[in-house]
Amino acid sequence: MDKSKRFFLKGAGALLAGMSAYQATRASEHSSPASQRKYALLHDENRCIGCDACTQACREVNQVPEGVSRLDIVRTGPHGEYPNQTYHFERQSCQHCENAPCVNVCPTGAAYKDPQTGIIKVDEWKCVGCLYCIAACPYKVRFIHPVTRAADKCDFCEQTRLSKGELPACVTSCPTQALVFGDLLDTQSGVYQLVRTQPVSRDKESLGTSPKLFKIRAAKGEVIL
């Protein structure tokens, strides 16, 4: 990355005073064409065993440094009393919101929704590291990449795998098929069928963000001791 460009953009942070006018320009920059796909991911917590194969695959494929993570599996428990105890495993990663707060607050247009895929992306060349997106994200899944110094997060492996016609690394590495990825606009896709037929939920729906990370909640946990 051209560091001089990065420094120039950092200096241009003074343009925040004219942020409203800039936001109007930025909105048109990524507005065409209309979305052709609407990618989404479903995590079946009843199938998840907390093995962390997905997190390791994500780190390796996307070259995520130690100390930060695009994807975490949060383990809680044990629940209940011995010998009938269970653990619960929940995925935490970018929700790829339809109405993304991170996009709304970004002063440079570095955070945007891809009109062709619906994926929330980061243009690292435009990112000035202002932390606005990190503060605005209600799911707390963004971070500053220690090498690029730009905001980073899950992008469904858009650059490393989707562009090659492959599924996200977390999906292909899951040994229990707890993750299903696909296009919500494709009525034949697995994710569309599951969202339509299963009791799915999304985190913090009341905020109006319309996340595209769906979950089938575990009723009793996944690992019985």
Rank of each mutant, 00 (worst) to 15 (best):
R217A: 14
A169F: 07
E222M: 04
K140F: 13
K215C: 01
V191K: 01
G190E: 15
H145A: 01
L185C: 00
P175T: 11
F214G: 04
C170M: 13
S210Y: 12
K140W: 01
R217T: 15
P199C: 07
P146W: 12
L167V: 10
D203R: 14
G208D: 07
D203M: 12
I144F: 10
S206Q: 15
V141N: 05
G165D: 08
F143S: 03
R149V: 09
K164R: 15
K204T: 00
P138F: 09
C174Y: 02
D155C: 03
V147K: 10
P138L: 11
P199V: 02
G182D: 05
L185E: 05
H145N: 14
A219G: 08
L194D: 08
F181W: 11
L179I: 09
V147C: 06
S201L: 09
C157S: 10
V191G: 00
L194K: 15
P168D: 04
L194P: 02
L162Y: 06
Q177P: 02
A178R: 09
Y139P: 07
S189T: 05
S189K: 10
S189M: 10
K140Q: 13
Q188N: 13
P199S: 10
K215F: 07
G190V: 07
A219Y: 01
T187K: 10
A218T: 15
K220M: 11
D152Q: 08
T172E: 14
D183H: 06
